[in-house]
Write a protein that binds this DNA or RNA. Structure first.
Lengths: 179, 179
DNA sequence: CCGATAGCAGAATGATCATTCTGACACAAG
DNA sequence: CTTGTGTCAGAATGATCATTCTGCTATCGG
């Protein structure tokens, strides 16, 4: 998963993956079936082991915009721990590299973005119950777009502080707008 | 350029490029030197032929936040013309796929983002001259992040209207914040 | 100890890749 | 016409790729 995360699908050879995992070629093929199937399994593992723990705070009942702030901060801290520029987000990387030419990956990416939308939407109505549905939906889309931009930028920006300040400003804008 | 734009670097074979351009293998190698050099040339052509015309409105003297709105609208209209999900942005695609493992591409990506920062910054101080330097810089970073997110999302979202409404909301938030 | 299962390294295979080379054709200048 | 330059299609090359196959080894229940 780590290797696909950092290098993407096409730049990861089976030799690389054998080296990185310590698992034999034979083991990979009998267990997963092939490179693409292994990639999909890694994608799902990423969601289970990386996305879910970080996004949990937003998916809890009663989560509000402060929970979203915590989520963003966790993301940046995780990224900074491994040094910048970081690997970004497995999902966002796949969305640009593989999703347009692979329906299976596209479905997983769409599902992931829907998950973000749902979490952000619940946090938003918790913080601003007076918003009508359409208005909230557009704000949520904006938050999803910003989240994806954060991941893209983290692949080429070498200072986590820059991203952290921008996130803090972004949430301040939304908070101002909802109060 | 179009082929690299849509399929990225690794998924474009020289055969594909010969087919797509109508130029012979020999011609490509004698003119550019190789696949990587051709990619860099396409990157620069993209900046000249796609980025510059669209971003021009922001780089004009006297450009303000309204100019930024025009820029975003142009981007979405261009993307929607070719149908969704679209090819996104050559630069943003390269930022996730190739920049982390190639210093030349990384330099071009960084330069491109600096260009966005500079343009957004001038538009922002035009609209809100009272902002201090630090505050404006963080807002500008937020706008760059959002722009990159827009491109990433346009590779997996099939409805331009969703993006258009999110952009309009984003600019409304910034405008509210600066007035 | 024995037999069986499982996992391993690494070779073999066939496809695809980037790159280079060959020979033919078109056209412009002398 | 001739010579030279440029471009072309396509073959040849050598590397790398995903995938499959072949033995070897280790472990474990009896």
């Amino acid at each position: 998963m780590q290797h696909f995360w950092v290098h993407g699908f096409h730049a990861s050879s089976m030799d690389d993956l054998v080296r990185a995992t310590g698992v034999s070629r034979h083991g990979i093929y009998t267990t997963f079936g092939g490179k693409k199937a292994l990639f999909l399994a890694c994608f799902e593992r990423y969601q289970r082991r990386v996305v879910t723990p970080a996004f949990d705070v937003v998916e809890q009942p009663g989560a509000d915009l402060q929970s979203v702030a915590t989520y963003f901060e966790t993301q940046i801290t995780n990224g900074a721990a491994a040094g910048f520029p970081g690997p970004g987000c497995f999902v966002a990387n796949s969305a640009t590299e593989v999703a347009p030419s692979d329906a299976d990956v596209m479905a997983l990416v769409t599902h992931h973005n829907d998950r973000l939308r749902q979490g952000f939407a619940r946090a938003l109505v918790q913080s601003a119950p007076e918003f009508d549905h359409d208005r909230a939906r557009d704000l949520v889309e904006m938050m999803v777009i910003f989240t994806n931009g954060l991941w893209t930028m983290s692949r080429s920006v070498d200072d986590a502080g820059v991203l952290r300040r921008a996130v803090s400003d972004f949430l301040r804008l939304i908070t101002e707008h909802t109060t």
